[in-house]
């Protein structure tokens, strides 16, 4: 099992957001998490990745058999959990290249490997840029500094490719993307589907799932999964909205 979330409760600023969330993700599977605004979709990604201020109060989460909630934020990352941010933040003055190399080296160190040589890393980073249609000049720029919305998202996918995580959580990566950028992001994700790597794709719209076809679709409402199905569920939601489900919950 890649990820096993069991009856998870979590709060943010004293407010209960997740209320009994359970999902099982096996290696290689792609799960789409959909749901109305305020249902707890982003909270799920933040709790799983260990963002300060997001506190799990009950339930359990195991990641590759380990107790995820006991692990430090950076340890989760080094163990292969990746969160692609909905709103990637800027770090002025820190070059993308420096940042990416530090991240890759932190993971390699954790795995008992040597740091990458700057030459090898530059080569790898340039190739990866090409894969997400970013000019290599982005490596020299400050992390997300002055990037457009689409460039920030592609930068996230580039980081995902470089870090080769085992579990990728995409937090509304499609929001604010035009159709071309969406295609690039989806191509990137699809290229990384290798039968072992798992994905949790959090999205508000069915549109993304035309490009990244999920194995399962879950509807999150009121802090827990209220309905699960295959990709056809996404189409049904597109047609009917979320209202009919919420009435079912109550």
């Amino acid at each position: 099992m890649m990820l096993n979330i069991k009856d998870l409760y979590a709060k943010v600023e004293e407010k209960d957001i997740l209320k009994g969330l359970s999902i099982e993700v096996k290696p290689g599977e792609v799960h789409a998490i959909m749901g109305p605004n305020g249902s707890g979709k982003s909270t799920m990604g933040n709790v799983l990745s260990g963002r300060p201020g997001y506190e799990a109060t009950a339930g359990s989460v195991t990641f590759k058999g380990q107790d995820l909630l006991e692990m430090e934020t950076e340890e989760r990352a080094r163990e292969g959990l990746f969160l692609a941010f909905q709103y990637p933040v800027e770090i002025p003055g820190v070059s993308n290249m420096e940042f990416l190399k530090a991240a890759v080296d932190a993971k390699r160190k954790h795995q008992g490997l040597e740091e990458m040589s700057s030459v090898d890393f530059l080569k790898l980073a340039r190739e990866t840029c090409k894969r997400v249609n970013l000019d290599a000049s982005f490596l020299k720029r400050g992390v997300n500094e002055g990037f457009s919305g689409g460039e920030k998202k592609r930068n996230e996918i580039m980081q995902m490719m470089l870090l080769e995580p085992e579990l990728c959580i995409l937090d509304e990566t499609d929001s604010g993307l035009d159709i071309d950028a969406l295609q690039v992001v989806a191509d990137g994700v699809n290229a990384m589907r290798d039968g072992k790597r798992s994905f949790l794709v959090v999205t508000h719209y069915q549109r993304l799932l035309d490009y990244i076809v999920p194995d399962y679709v879950h509807v999150l409402a009121g802090g827990r999964i209220v309905k699960s199905g295959d990709k056809s569920l996404a189409l049904e939601l597109e047609a009917k909205g979320y209202g009919w489900l919420e009435s079912e919950v109550v």
Binding site: S49, G50, R51, P52, E72, T73, E74, A77, R78, F82, L83, F85, P88, V89, I91, F99, A102, A103, A106, K107, H110, V143, Q159, L163
Partner: peptide
Amino acid sequence: QMFLCQQRGLD
């Protein structure tokens, strides 16, 4: 900013 760095594995 701190969270972005830590989520990428930096202490």
